[in-house]
Simulated assay, not measured.
Amino acid sequence: MANPWTGEAEVRIDDVSYVCKLTLGALAELEGGLGEGSLIDLIRRFEGGAFSSRDVMAVVVAGLRGGGWQGTADDLMSAEIAGGPVGAAQLAATLLARAFAPPA
């Protein structure tokens, strides 16, 4: 079970639950994979609703890896993420929010 107070969120992928967390290492990996811009640019895209599916995938993969998952984005290409694209986008936004602010 995920602990939001420590920045964790839970996701179901192919009917298996995983804990996700944007650790410092996961954030560094995420920022390195963005190619251009910074995490602040990424957060602004999410806040403004201008994020891409690539942004969502990058955040979800980073969160999974921060939670101990050993996979890659390629492993998720045919996976069923609970809630579909909207669920994945909500997970990504939640992970970013929890990484930089305590839960309300």
Rank of each mutant, 00 (worst) to 15 (best):
G48A: 15
L24K: 07
I13V: 15
A79M: 09
I43T: 08
T6H: 08
W5G: 01
G83C: 10
F46P: 04
A89K: 04
G71T: 06
P102Q: 12
W69M: 02
G83N: 13
G7Q: 08
L64P: 10
G71A: 05
V16F: 07
I13G: 08
V16R: 14
M57R: 12
A93R: 13
V60D: 01
A93K: 13
K21D: 00
A73Y: 00
E29I: 00
A101V: 02
A104W: 10
G25S: 14
G49Y: 02
I13Y: 06
F51T: 02
V16A: 13
D14F: 06
G33P: 00
G25Q: 12
V60T: 07
S53T: 03
V61H: 03
V19I: 15
G66K: 06
G68N: 06
G84D: 12
R12F: 13
R65P: 00
L91M: 12
F46H: 03
A26V: 11
V86G: 01
E29V: 00
A92Q: 05
S78N: 14
L30Q: 09
V56C: 05
L76P: 09
E31M: 04
V60K: 02
A26C: 07
L91S: 08
Q70E: 14
K21T: 12
A50Q: 13
L64D: 04
R65E: 05
A28I: 08
G87Y: 13
W69Y: 11
V16D: 12
A26Q: 09
A26G: 07
L76Q: 05
V19S: 03
G84T: 09
I40K: 14
R44L: 15
T23Q: 06
L30C: 08
E8V: 11
V16N: 09
A92K: 01
A73R: 10
G87S: 12
L22H: 04
A2R: 04
G83H: 11
G87N: 12
E47N: 15
G63F: 09
E8N: 09
E36K: 11
A9R: 11
V61F: 04
R98H: 13
W5L: 15
A101Y: 10
L39H: 04
Q90G: 04
A92T: 02
A73K: 04
M57D: 06
G33K: 09
G84Y: 07
V86H: 08
G67I: 03
E31C: 05
I81G: 04
G49K: 07
G32W: 01
A99D: 02
E36Y: 07
A79S: 15
V56L: 05
F51R: 00
Q90N: 15
E10P: 00
G49E: 07
L34K: 04
G35V: 00
S17E: 09
E10M: 14
T94H: 03
T94N: 01
A2V: 08
T23E: 10
G66S: 09
L64S: 07
E29W: 04
S52G: 08
I13L: 04
Q90A: 12
A93I: 00
R44G: 15
G32H: 01
T6R: 09
F46D: 03
S38N: 11
T23I: 07
F51L: 05
T72W: 00
A79G: 09
G84N: 06
C20P: 03
R54N: 05
G71K: 06
G66V: 11
A101T: 11
A89E: 14
E10R: 14
G68W: 01
G63W: 07
A28L: 10
L91W: 10
R65W: 02
D55R: 06
V59M: 02
L39N: 08
G67A: 06
